[in-house]
Amino acid sequence: MNRKVQSTIRKMKDADGNYLWQPPVSADRIATLLGFPVAEAEAMPDVAANSLSIAFGDFKRGYLVVDRAGLRVLRDPYSAKPYVLFYTTKRVGGGVQDFDAIKLLKFA
C-alpha cells in the first residue's frame, strides 16, 4: 500500500476499539497491520471506488524474481572525446509464481 492508504488504515479500529495498525515498538522494527508486517509501495493506487489499493500475502512464495547472471559492458571511445564511456546492462525480470499466495483488497 502507499502512504495515503496507510493514513486511512491507521484510523480503522476493530470491534473492541483497538487500532488495526500498530506502530513499531522500536527504531529497528516495522509497523504491523493485524500482526503482519507492512511494506510501503508508492506505485500502488490510492483508495477509490473499485481500486486494488492493498496487496496482502506471502510475497516470498508468491512472486519470483529472475536475475540473470553477468553484466554486459559496452565501451564507447567515440562519443565524449577524450573520455571513454562505459554502458552496462543487466537482465532482471519477475512475475507471479503462486496466485494463491497474494491477494488484492478491492475498495468499494
Score class of each variant (00 low, 15 high):
residue 2 N to F: 02
residue 65 V to C: 05
residue 53 S to K: 00
residue 103 K to W: 05
residue 66 V to Y: 14
residue 24 P to G: 02
residue 88 T to W: 13
residue 8 T to Q: 03
residue 95 G to S: 08
residue 48 A to Q: 12
residue 6 Q to T: 04
residue 97 Q to N: 07
residue 56 F to K: 09
residue 17 G to R: 10
residue 84 V to W: 01
residue 40 E to R: 10
residue 8 T to P: 00
residue 98 D to Q: 11
residue 5 V to W: 00
residue 76 D to N: 13
residue 105 L to H: 11
residue 104 L to S: 00
residue 57 G to R: 09
residue 67 D to F: 12
residue 35 G to H: 01
residue 19 Y to G: 14
residue 14 D to L: 11
residue 24 P to D: 07
residue 48 A to G: 15
residue 71 L to G: 12
residue 107 F to C: 00
residue 4 K to Q: 10
residue 91 R to K: 10
residue 49 A to M: 03
residue 80 A to D: 15
residue 66 V to H: 08
residue 86 F to P: 02
residue 70 G to H: 12
residue 36 F to G: 00
residue 36 F to T: 11
residue 3 R to P: 10
residue 54 I to S: 02
residue 11 K to R: 12
residue 13 K to M: 13
residue 85 L to N: 06
residue 107 F to H: 02
residue 32 T to C: 07
residue 107 F to Y: 03
residue 92 V to C: 09
residue 104 L to W: 03
residue 65 V to R: 12
residue 9 I to K: 02
residue 41 A to I: 08
residue 74 L to R: 07
residue 106 K to D: 05
residue 39 A to Y: 15
residue 26 S to I: 02
residue 69 A to D: 11
residue 68 R to N: 13
residue 18 N to H: 06
residue 28 D to W: 04
residue 2 N to I: 02
residue 85 L to A: 11
residue 91 R to Y: 14
residue 91 R to S: 13
residue 97 Q to G: 00
residue 64 L to Q: 14
residue 1 M to Y: 08
residue 34 L to N: 13
residue 14 D to Q: 08
residue 4 K to W: 00
residue 2 N to R: 01
residue 83 Y to A: 10
residue 16 D to I: 00
residue 105 L to E: 04
residue 106 K to E: 09
residue 41 A to F: 10
residue 86 F to T: 08
residue 104 L to V: 02
residue 2 N to K: 03
residue 57 G to C: 13
residue 89 T to G: 05
residue 107 F to R: 00
residue 59 F to M: 15
residue 99 F to I: 08
residue 49 A to D: 04
residue 20 L to D: 05
residue 52 L to G: 06
residue 97 Q to P: 00
residue 86 F to W: 13
residue 51 S to D: 03
residue 87 Y to G: 13
residue 105 L to T: 01
residue 86 F to V: 14
residue 56 F to A: 15
residue 31 A to V: 13
residue 65 V to A: 12
residue 9 I to C: 11
residue 71 L to A: 13
residue 12 M to V: 10
residue 97 Q to F: 07
residue 58 D to C: 14
residue 102 I to K: 04
residue 70 G to D: 06
residue 63 Y to L: 06
residue 104 L to N: 03
residue 30 I to D: 15
residue 65 V to T: 14
residue 6 Q to E: 07
residue 43 A to Q: 13
residue 108 A to C: 06
residue 108 A to K: 11
residue 91 R to D: 08
residue 61 R to A: 15
residue 78 Y to V: 12
residue 86 F to A: 03
residue 68 R to I: 15
residue 100 D to M: 08
residue 3 R to A: 14
residue 46 D to S: 04
residue 16 D to Y: 08
residue 64 L to Y: 12
residue 65 V to Y: 04
residue 20 L to N: 04
residue 58 D to H: 11
residue 66 V to T: 12
residue 13 K to C: 09
residue 46 D to Q: 04
residue 69 A to K: 14
residue 103 K to N: 03
residue 21 W to E: 02
residue 46 D to E: 06
residue 49 A to H: 09
residue 3 R to H: 04
residue 74 L to K: 14
residue 56 F to D: 09
residue 100 D to A: 12
residue 6 Q to C: 02
residue 11 K to V: 06
